[in-house]
């Protein structure tokens, strides 16, 4: 899929762990792992909003489009 999720990079920049982010966003660590590994088929605006709020970033910082 040409959409890349850069959640790992943002987590490292903010010095935050996955389980902390999962708690703040209100999703399970398993779902966050699906998102991080790029296995997710879609992301809800509400989840994206919560992630952006927790990581104090823009959606573009997390999602990236790379043409195949």
């Amino acid at each position: 899929m040409p959409i890349i999720v850069n959640l790992d990079i943002m987590l490292e920049k903010r010095g935050m762990k996955s389980n902390e982010l999962a708690d703040m966003v209100g999703i399970t660590t398993a779902n966050l792992s699906i998102l991080k590994t790029g296995k997710a088929r879609a992301i809800r605006f509400s989840t994206l909003e919560a992630i952006c709020e927790a990581l104090e970033c823009q959606p573009g910082d997390i999602l990236e489009f790379i043409k195949d």
Partner: peptide, 8 residues
């Protein structure tokens, strides 16, 4: 169902 389960 798969789509729903893989929507975060």
């Amino acid at each position: 169902k798969d789509d729903s389960e893989l929507t975060i």
